[in-house]
Computed example of a mutant assay.
Amino acid sequence: MASDRITTAVPIDNRAAGARKSGQGTVDWAIKGELILNCNCTVFCPCVVSLGLHPPTEGHCQTWGGVRIDSGHYGGTDLSGLNIGLLIEIPGMMSRGNWKVALYIDDRASEAAYNGLLDIFSGKAKGTTGLFNVLVGEVIGVERQPVRYETEGKTRRITVGRQIEGVVHPVEGKNPEEDIVIRNTKYWMGPDITVATATKGRVRAHGRVWDFHGRSAEICQIDWSGPGKG
């Protein structure tokens, strides 16, 4: 079985003990679902429209995120119904790299699904998330955790063990029934980003103690795949 925690100061290239070697970008994979992010930006994150060429509003980025996988596979392994938690720290502009990342993989994942998700979210699987292999300078931890991603109306709630607790909802527009959406972007996550905010955004992990209540958030429908994209 996969270990509960892997701690490493280099990009991930290890499997769970005794597992097969990574496919290194040769395995067909796809994920469809939803991603939410909540960061320390005081207004909507400028990275979305600048593609990481504009600095975050605070000069550096501290972010937690969650991914709900509605359907997906890694080779012949089904990933549907699993969730992912993320902690990301970037010292300046997103495009300049040197990210620090912690990854939380759903504790319901089989060993094969765990290893596939590790390939995808480390960038080793190439494709949509292949840029992680370039931009991430340090992986501060990988853990199995109970990752719960719930939707109630327009509100998204996520918990990652005791490390992350977040509540995100779209910012209300003139027509409250219609979300404010930035469309047709070249943002790597997806072209259409819903402008959101957090009513709860607590992180207690890896020496980080963050509270991003009222700060910028994003909601994005994702359609990722590889390895052909990257």
Rank of each mutant, 00 (worst) to 15 (best):
W210R: 07
C61A: 07
F132H: 15
R202Q: 14
K154Y: 04
I31K: 08
T26I: 00
R183T: 15
F121D: 02
A16C: 14
T185C: 05
V203P: 02
I193N: 00
F132V: 07
G66T: 02
G201W: 06
E89Y: 11
I12T: 15
V181E: 05
F132M: 13
C47E: 04
G201C: 08
A198G: 13
C45T: 01
G97K: 09
E177N: 12
G65I: 03
W29I: 00
V195W: 05
I164R: 08
V171W: 01
Q221R: 15
T63H: 05
G23A: 13
D211M: 01
L103N: 10
G153I: 03
V171I: 12
I105N: 09
A102N: 12
Y149G: 02
R20F: 08
N133A: 15
G153A: 03
P55Y: 04
D70I: 09
G141R: 13
V136W: 02
I90C: 11
D223F: 06
G127R: 01
G166K: 05
L131Q: 14
V181S: 06
I84C: 02
T159R: 11
M189V: 15
E34K: 15
G25S: 03
L118M: 12
D78G: 09
D28L: 06
R20G: 12
A217E: 04
G97F: 05
L103G: 10
I219L: 10
V49S: 12
D13V: 09
S80Q: 09
T197I: 08
I6E: 11
T77F: 05
D78I: 10
I193G: 00
A217W: 04
T8S: 12
G141F: 11
T42L: 07
E89C: 08
S122V: 07
G25F: 03
K229N: 11
S50M: 04
D4S: 13
I12C: 08
D107Q: 13
K200L: 11
L117A: 03
A125R: 02
S225I: 01
G153T: 04
S80P: 11
N115M: 03
T159G: 03
V168Q: 08
A198S: 13
S216N: 14
P146F: 02
R20Q: 13
D179C: 09
E178K: 15
L53Y: 08
A16Q: 11
P170S: 06
P11Q: 01
G75S: 04
E138A: 04
V134Y: 07
A112H: 05
F212R: 03
C39I: 06
R202E: 10
C39S: 09
I12D: 08
V181L: 06
I6H: 13
T128P: 00
